[in-house]
């Protein structure tokens, strides 16, 4: 598709929960500097696919390539070590901790036994400034006092703090108002422009077309199509989501094995 090789590439991923097969032979790629939207109806397998990428669910069979090398990802730590970060829908922030504390949670900087608060605050400030975030008053305010958009910003900043190469965002705008959605989408675009591979899961076609370079549509656990956003129309994507195909694109009858 493109001249450059994907940072993250999955081939032939199968995943079952007991007797229910959720993912059938799924292929998926994410490219550096691009936003890849992952779309699909409820139950299409988006969340499961993401959890396989993040190492939360081990996949049954298939191949996982990262920067061209075949890798094994069996735990969230493996994924984090590769540079894959996931921002979950429910954000996973602690309300009773401040912004800096949340961004470094579980990976605190220490000098000896003691937490190195000054260095952490400095790094957090640099990261937020790098993302052009200017809406937070103080880095030491508790997350509970932030708006939904600001929380999303903190969650995203937390993901990029670690020189990550792939950032996966699970419905980042689902709970946000219009202005905040625009803010977060701008941030998503910025991540890609900084050279990260961004995967955006969304239900909202406007959001998808506003920021994505590529669109991958899942249909009942199968990858219906992965196309460039500029080469498809709004209604084609909707068709891919609802029926798995659209004209030339998508699953052929019987091709789904």
């Amino acid at each position: 598709m493109s001249s450059q090789a994907p940072v993250l590439e999955l081939r032939g991923i199968d995943k079952s929960f007991g007797p229910v097969q959720v993912l059938h032979n799924v292929a998926f790629s994410a490219y550096a500097g691009e936003v890849t939207a992952l779309v699909g109806d409820n139950g299409a397998g988006k969340s499961t696919l993401v959890k396989c990428i993040g190492g939360i669910h081990p996949y049954d069979s298939g191949e996982y390539y990262f920067e061209g090398n075949r890798v094994q990802v069996n735990s969230p730590r493996d994924a984090a070590a590769l540079g894959v970060e996931i921002v979950y829908q429910d954000l996973a922030l602690c309300d009773n901790l401040d912004i800096v504390q949340n961004m470094f949670l579980g990976r605190e900087r220490k000098s000896g036994l003691v937490l190195d608060e000054a260095t952490m605050e400095e790094m957090a400030a640099k990261t937020l400034a790098g993302l052009s975030v200017r809406t937070v008053k103080s880095l030491r305010q508790h997350v509970s006092s932030l708006s939904g958009g600001q929380r999303q910003t903190v969650a995203i900043a937390k993901a990029v703090l670690w020189n990550s190469k792939v950032v996966i965002l699970d419905e980042p705008t689902a709970a946000l108002g219009v202005a905040q959605t625009a803010q977060v989408l701008e941030l998503v675009r910025q991540l890609a422009d900084k050279g990260l591979a961004v995967v955006l899961i969304s239900h909202n076609m406007n959001d998808v077309f506003a920021v994505s370079d590529r669109i991958a549509a899942l249909y009942l656990g199968r990858m219906a199509a992965q196309v460039k956003a500029s080469e498809v129309t709004h209604s084609q994507v909707v068709e891919l989501i609802t029926s798995g195909r659209s004209g030339e694109l998508g699953l052929k009858n019987g091709a789904a094995t």
Partner: peptide, 10 residues
């Protein structure tokens, strides 16, 4: 504050 967040943070 949020046991699930703590768990996800490793």
């Amino acid at each position: 504050g949020n046991a699930e967040a703590a768990r996800r943070a490793g």
